[in-house]
Design a protein around this nucleic acid. Structure first.
Lengths: 229, 229
DNA sequence: ACCTGAACACCGTTCAAGT
DNA sequence: ACCTGAACACCGTTCAAGT
């Protein structure tokens, strides 16, 4: 018995194991539950043991971002730039959807890890190879913002399911004060064939904006746009 | 003496005063320094005294977001939709730039306050009055994302000034591993006429992406686009 | 040299005791 | 009824004592 427990504890606590456990904990219990103390507990280890594999919590967060980025598919080869970029970004989006906390953690990072830099470098390369000037590529990357990593910050979470009765009351109150918001909310609800649709088709919205931007980029590329214009 | 202190303490602790102090504290000391305890100390009050004017920290954060949104100029009247939307968003951007912590706090909100809803409603109204269908307006608002409030999450903070010597070494290392990133970084640096330019022209980048989107929206409006296409 | 328990300096918030 | 100090249940991290 004691031997078994000892054996379990002896699985050496690598950085990789720490990061994996952190990702799992964030996935299961939410990012707000990811503390050094709880993570240590999850690993059957004293809190301070983590600090041998990770300098501090910031580095832990950098690490789990790298784990998520590792799930993004490599670029597809043999298509035009737009298709290649589009597919890569949608793959990134899939990875991010698997870890709902990831976008929030990415936003809180102050310096990019090597893994992030490598990803950005490969995305920039796709534009450059596709015929974009350095200048245009620069601005295009800024215009993409976090969308290059497959997410946009939706301003508010409309995914929380609310009691329909409560929602009906809210609609009544909203209609008076915020007529335009209500108008759109009702239209969106109808599309989803429920009286009080619980939100929008995120995938559609993401691709709508993505394609709008990519089409705009292609137009600028064709007319050899420069920032001196 | 005692009378004076008492008099100071007697300035009644309104919700307004609490929020103002919170904004000032976040402006001066950074958002990470805004705790209930420090805020109370700043106001010369016991921590629990705050809870009479604010239910909890979440409500405090909602409150300070409302204060910032209150600084956004009302819509300009008498121009086309594009100009009106553009100006309003740039005004929002100015307000957000005055409070660098604001975008981060906004992103962390889960439900919009009435002030936010009012702002969104008026933005939606500008599109509707400008001739956009409910359907197109809906998708356009999603495509704008946080840009509607005047900010985008730049993926990483390139504004931190680094020792030029250190930066030179970094460039050398980066050039090998991340050639495309380096190419853009060097071009951006040249534009700013310094060997190691400290970042990009954020205002230019913001307007570049904003205009790209607005032009795209106008194009869709003119061709009476619907999501059924 | 390595590991780790206790401790430190913080949090947001509850609650009961004091006025 | 109102106010508030102490306490609770947490944090991330330091540090010295133990092996």
């Amino acid at each position: 018995m004691t031997v078994q427990v000892d054996a379990l504890r002896r699985v050496p606590l690598s950085r990789d194991r720490v990061l994996r456990a952190a990702v799992a904990l964030a996935d299961d219990a939410g990012i707000e539950s990811l503390s050094m103390r709880k993570l240590a507990q999850e690993l059957g280890v004293v809190p301070m043991a983590l600090y041998k594999h990770v300098a501090n919590k910031e580095e832990l967060l950098n690490g789990i971002v790298d784990v998520v980025l590792g799930e993004i598919n490599p670029p597809v080869r043999g298509t035009d730039w737009k298709n290649a970029v589009r597919q890569r970004i949608l793959s990134a989006r899939q990875a991010l959807l698997r870890h709902p906390w990831a976008s929030q953690v990415i936003e809180s990072r102050t310096t990019p890890t090597p893994v992030v830099l490598e990803y950005l470098d490969s995305m920039i390369g796709m534009f450059r190879v596709g015929g974009f000037s350095v200048d245009l590529t620069h601005h295009v990357m800024h215009a993409m913002g976090s969308r290059i990593l497959g997410f946009t910050q939706e301003l508010f979470d409309d995914s929380q399911s609310v009691d329909p009765e409560v929602q009906a009351v809210m609609f009544g109150e909203m209609a008076g004060k915020y007529p335009y918001v209500t108008e759109i909310a009702m239209a969106a609800a109808h599309v989803e064939e429920s009286v009080v649709g619980q939100g929008c088709d995120d995938q559609f919205e993401f691709e709508f904006a993505l394609d709008l931007l990519l089409d705009g980029f292609e137009r600028l590329r064709q007319q050899a746009w420069t920032s001196a214009d």
